[in-house]
Design a protein around this nucleic acid. Structure first.
Lengths: 209, 209
DNA sequence: CATTCTCTTGACCAGTTGGTAAAAATAACG
DNA sequence: CGTTATTTTTACCAACTGGTCAAGAGAATG
C-alpha cells in the first residue's frame, strides 16, 4: 500500500514518524542546495534510510519539496496577520519586527528554503504569492497607510516598509554565514543585537532629533 | 593548447569573446539554480556552444563559478568603500543606499549569485568574507560610530545598520518575483519607489516628529 | 501462531552528469 | 597558398540521477 495518498489520513505510527524524519532531512538539504541541487539520495542518507524506502513515503522529490513549502507558508504569513488595527501603531510595528526576527532565529532553514524558491523565480509559489500573499500585504499596507494618514506614523510607502522588515529580519537567517563572518559574536548576541538595532532604525531612523 | 591557464594573458579574439559569452551564460544559470543545481550542459546551451567546446575555455564547472565570484566581489565592495569620512553623515548614508540600490537594479543576477553562495554556507567565499569583507565593514562601522559619537547620527549599532542596508537593497534583486507579485508595478517604479522609501526609513524612521 | 498488512531492501533502469580523447574544421600567418 | 596553431565536433566514459519492481523482513491482528 502506498502511503502518500493525498486524501489519506489514517497513518501508522511508523508512517508518521518516518514522514517527519524525511521532512526534517529534506528541509536541510533543500535549504542548502536548492531544489535542483538537492538529491533524493542526500535526503534519504540524512534521514537515515535507503532511497527506495524514502520513496515509499513520498512518491517524488517534487512532492517532498511542495509539502515543505506548503507547511512553510502558514507560519510565514502568521506574523503579519497578527498586526492589529486596534493596537498602538509604533508598538504594532515593533512587535511585528520582533516576531519576524524570532522566526529568522528559530527557523533559519525555513527562511533559506523560501529564499531559494524566490531566487529561482518561485515556480511553485508564484500563484499563492500573487493571490494570498498580495491580498494580505495589501490589507495590512492599507491599515498602515491609515495610521500614517492619522499622523500616527511618518508617511512612508507601506508596501516598501513591509518589504524592508522582511528583508532585514530574514537577512539574519539567509546570510547568517556572512553576518557571523563579520561580527564573529555568538548566535544569540547577533540576533538580540539585530532586534535592538532594527527597532531603532525603523522607529526613529538615523537623523538625530 | 589549453586556454584557461591562470597566468595566461595572451588571449585570442575568439578566446576573449567566448570566455565572456560563457561567463554571461553561467551567471544566469548559477544565479537561478545555484552551484549544485547548475549544469555545464545548461550553461553551454545558453552560451550557444557544445559542452566540450565550453570545457575548452574553462577546465571545470568549479572554475567558472569561482571566476564569477571573483569578478563579483570587487564591484560588490566598492559602494561601501566610497563612503567618505569627510562627507556629511546623513548624506553619505543616503548616497550609499542609492549606490547599493542601483547595483541591485542593474546587476540582479550578480546579487542572486551572491545570495546563493551565502545560503549554502559560502564554501568558496568564507575566507575572503572573514578577511577582506570584515576588514572593510569594521573600518566603516568605526567611521559611522565616530559620527554617532559626535551626535551627527542617532546611536545605532553601525554593523547592524550596514547589514540592514545590504538586506533591504539586495532584497529587491533577490526577491524580485515576490516584490513584483505583490506590487505588480513595473520594474522602474519598484526600484525608484524602493529608493525613496528606504531613504526615509533609514534617515527619519517611522515615529512622527 | 498463522495470516495479513506494512515496511525495507537489493537489483535494476533509462536518462543525465561532469569530463576526456582524438579527429575534423577553421583561422592565422609567413 | 601551404603550414601551423587554434577551435569545434563527434564519440565516448564512469558516476550519479530520479524512480521502479519484486521479494523479503517485520509488525499487527484475529
Amino acid at each position: 500500500m502506498k502511503v502518500y495518498g493525498l486524501a489519506d489520513k489514517k497513518r501508522t505510527r511508523i508512517q508518521t514518524e518516518n514522514r517527519q524524519t524525511i521532512r526534517d532531512a529534506a528541509l536541510e538539504i533543500f535549504a542548502r542546495d536548492g531544489f535542483r541541487g538537492a538529491t533524493v539520495d542526500a535526503i534519504a542518507s540524512k534521514a537515515g534510510m535507503s532511497k527506495p524506502n524514502l520513496l515509499y513515503y513520498f512518491p517524488t522529490k517534487d512532492e517532498i519539496y511542495r509539502e515543505l513549502l506548503q507547511n512553510l507558508l502558514e507560519s510565514w504569513l502568521a506574523p503579519l496577520q497578527e498586526v492589529d488595527a486596534d493596537g498602538e501603531p509604533t508598538e504594532q510595528i515593533a512587535a511585528y519586527i520582533a516576531r519576524k526576527m524570532a522566526l529568522a532565529r528559530d527557523f533559519p532553514m525555513e527562511s533559506r528554503l523560501f529564499a531559494n524558491e524566490m531566487i529561482r523565480g518561485a515556480p511553485i509559489l508564484l500563484d499563492v504569492l500573487s493571490r494570498d500573499l498580495k491580498g494580505l500585504v495589501d490589507e495590512k499596507a492599507a491599515l498602515i497607510q491609515a495610521w500614517m494618514d492619522d499622523g500616527k506614523l511618518a508617511p512612508i510607502d507601506p508596501h516598501h516598509l513591509i518589504f524592508a522588515i522582511w528583508a532585514t529580519t530574514q537577512h539574519y537567517a539567509d546570510f547568517d554565514v556572512q553576518v557571523s563572518a563579520v561580527l564573529g559574536s555568538d548566535s544569540d548576541d547577533r540576533f538580540s543585537g539585530a532586534a535592538t538595532a532594527l527597532t531603532k532604525i525603523f522607529l526613529d531612523g538615523l537623523r538625530p532629533r
